[in-house]
C-alpha cells in the first residue's frame, strides 16, 4: 500500500502548476525513497524531472513500487478542491487502478476525498548522466521569469551567454533586439536575491523562449533558480522544492544550420 501525507498541500498544487502546461499526462513513480517523475513534452524538446523525497513528507509509506499514470488536467481539477492550508494525503492500494486524494482542513472540521482513475502510460525513460557543467548560474527565480517574459517579445529564441563577469540573455527579431546582463552580486545581504556564477569555461547557447517560459511556472516553488550549462548539451533549470526535493527541466539547445 502507498500513503503519503503532506501538511502543506500548497506545495503539491505548485508542483502541478509547474508541469501541467508542459505535460498532458505523466507517470508518478512511487517507491520507498519517494515520488519521482520523468517525462518529455510531446515534441521531445524538453524533459521534466521531479523528485520528492519520502523524508520530506510528514508521513510516507510505500510497501511496493507503484507507477501511477496520471492525467494532469484531471489531477488539476482535484487539487483545485484543496484549500491552500489543507493537509493532503495520497493513498493507493498495491496494483491499484485508482488513487485517492484526501484533504483535511487545518482544524479538521472538513474532510474530503477524491478518487481518480489511473492510466496506463507508455513512458520513455532517458538516462541522464551526472554532469560537471561549465557554468552554473544561480539567480532569483522571479528575475529569471521576468527576463524570459521580456525577451519572448523580441524573438522565439534566447541566447544565454555566460562568462566570469556575468550572464547575458539576448533575443532578436522583427522589432529589434534586446540584451539583459546580470553581474554577479558583490555583497549578498539576502541570499535569495543573489546572482552567483561558477564558471569553468565560457558557454553561449541558444534556446526556445517558449519552453523557458513554461519552466518559469515553477517560480512560486523557490526564490532561487539554478541554470547549468555546458557546450552542446541540454540546459538544466532547477528549482528546489523546500526541504522535500526539486524539479529540474532539461532543454535541448538549438543549433545553427
Amino acid at each position: 500500500m502507498f500513503e503519503a501525507r503532506l501538511v502543506q498541500s500548497s506545495i503539491f498544487k505548485k508542483v502541478l502548476e509547474a508541469i501541467k502546461e508542459l505535460l498532458n499526462e505523466a507517470t508518478f513513480d512511487c517507491s520507498d525513497s519517494g515520488i519521482q517523475l520523468q517525462a518529455m513534452d510531446s515534441s521531445h524538446v524538453s524533459l521534466v524531472s521531479l523528485n520528492l523525497r519520502s523524508d520530506g513528507f510528514d508521513q510516507y509509506r510505500c510497501d511496493r513500487n507503484l507507477s501511477m499514470g496520471i492525467n494532469l488536467a484531471s489531477m488539476t481539477k482535484i487539487m483545485k478542491c484543496a484549500g491552500n492550508d489543507d493537509i493532503m494525503t495520497m493513498k493507493a492500494q498495491d496494483n491499484a487502478d485508482s488513487v485517492t486524494f484526501m484533504f483535511e482542513s487545518p482544524n479538521q472540521e472538513k474532510m474530503s476525498d477524491y478518487e481518480m482513475k489511473l492510466m496506463n502510460l507508455d513512458q520513455e525513460h532517458l538516462g541522464i548522466p551526472e554532469t560537471d557543467y561549465s557554468c552554473v548560474i544561480k539567480l532569483p527565480s522571479a528575475e529569471f521569469a521576468r527576463i524570459c517574459r521580456d525577451l519572448s517579445q523580441f524573438g522565439e529564441s534566447v541566447v544565454i551567454s555566460c562568462t566570469k563577469e556575468g550572464v547575458k540573455f539576448s533575443a532578436a527579431g522583427d522589432i529589434g533586439s534586446a540584451n539583459i546582463k546580470l553581474a554577479q552580486t558583490a555583497n549578498v545581504d539576502k541570499e535569495d536575491e543573489a546572482v552567483s556564477i561558477e564558471m569553468q569555461e565560457k558557454v553561449s547557447l541558444t534556446f526556445a523562449c517558449r519552453y523557458l517560459n513554461y519552466f518559469t511556472k515553477a517560480t512560486p516553488l523557490s526564490p532561487q533558480v539554478c541554470l547549468s550549462m555546458s557546450a552542446e548539451v541540454p540546459l538544466v533549470v532547477e528549482y528546489k522544492i523546500g526541504e522535500i526535493g526539486h524539479i529540474r527541466y532539461y532543454l535541448a539547445p538549438k543549433i545553427e544550420e
Binding site: S46, L126, P234, A252
Partner: peptide, 14 residues
Amino acid sequence: VEEQNEMNSFYQKS
C-alpha cells in the same frame, strides 16, 4: 537558420 534539437539526441533510453 536555427534548428531545434530533441532530447533523444543527447540522452539514451534507460
